[in-house]
Design a binder for these strands. Structure first.
Lengths: 165, 165
DNA sequence: ATTTATGCAAATCCTTTGCAAATCT
DNA sequence: AGATTTGCAAAGGATTTGCATAAAT
């Protein structure tokens, strides 16, 4: 389903429909690979990077393969379309759902690499306030609080290092 | 007078001294190039990247040249030593003074690329509060508020309607 | 005399591009 | 048909690494 219901305005469209709308408005075409990608991307709600997508799609034995350049090209479009949000973590781009998903920020565990989402209206107010003091017109922000998650700060000894995001 | 306080930064040391201390504690050596770099880096208080350093040093006609790999290696050490803070902006690493410089965050103008520093204790409190709610142990954070700076939002810009939702 | 650091060149990693062939509308 | 897209191979930019030589202790 369509659990894209969070008080936002146009929540009736599926990501696919929204993307099609976007593409048409740009005179772009609705191709097989764009379908495959958006389909795959919105199946789960996890953070991922381009490599994840390429790997996962190359594993499906149902002819769902999409080339690396196309994956990158489409990711950019999905960001432009407002469907995905992009952030940089450790040198590469990481993506997450944006469309129909409430604004939030992240706690990033430096040990296990987990990303924990949180929401804070207070922060948004603060953001406005600070910007206002500098005559700055805000369009967005990037906030990642880093440290150790509950599990990892419990552990006494160092665990084997996980692959860095 | 009182360099007898726990938890407070000893601001009596110059960056160079602090770095030497760090290097010794690691069994590393105080080389010419490390001297040149830290010297150059702490001359000004601007944000810079590795390329800036390399360029600037190659321009000095006083035999101050340092190779690219060494610049990168040393930048990492300076970050480890707590002298520089590193952040990622547009795919590359940007550095700024950390040692002896008050904690702050940034407003980033998407148009002129300016970085405006600001300080907010409220935000730090909020950070603790949020982290606490998740049993998270904070070690740091990265916050960049993006948008248009005062100057840039004044300018009347007639852009072709390209990236509208 | 050791041992660490440097510089060079080449390698990596992530991402983008040129272009001919394939695919949409 | 006519335009946009794709996939391939190769290019790119930022950063890192292997290794022989130079420098520091």
């Amino acid at each position: 389903m369509s659990n894209y219901s969070l008080g936002t305005v146009e929540v009736s469209l599926t990501p696919m429909q929204r993307f099609e709308e976007f593409l048409q408005s740009k005179g772009k075409r609705i191709t097989q690979q764009r379908r495959i990608l958006i389909d795959h991307v919105f199946k789960r709600h996890e953070h991922f990077d381009a490599e994840d997508l390429i790997d996962e799609l190359s594993r499906t034995n149902s002819g769902q393969r999409v080339s690396r350049p196309t994956v990158y090209r489409t990711l950019r479009e999905l960001v432009d379309a407002g469907l995905l949000k992009q952030m940089e973590l450790g040198g590469r781009s990481v993506y997450e759902h944006d469309y129909g998903y409430p604004q939030h920020d992240h706690l990033h565990c430096q040990k296990c690499n987990k990303l924990i989402e949180f929401r804070s209206d207070e922060f948004l107010e603060l953001r406005q306030k600070v910007a206002g003091e500098h005559g700055f017109r805000v369009t967005g922000h990037r906030l990642i609080i880093s440290g150790l998650c509950q599990d990892c700060s419990k552990v006494r000894r160092r665990k084997r290092p996980q692959d860095l995001i």
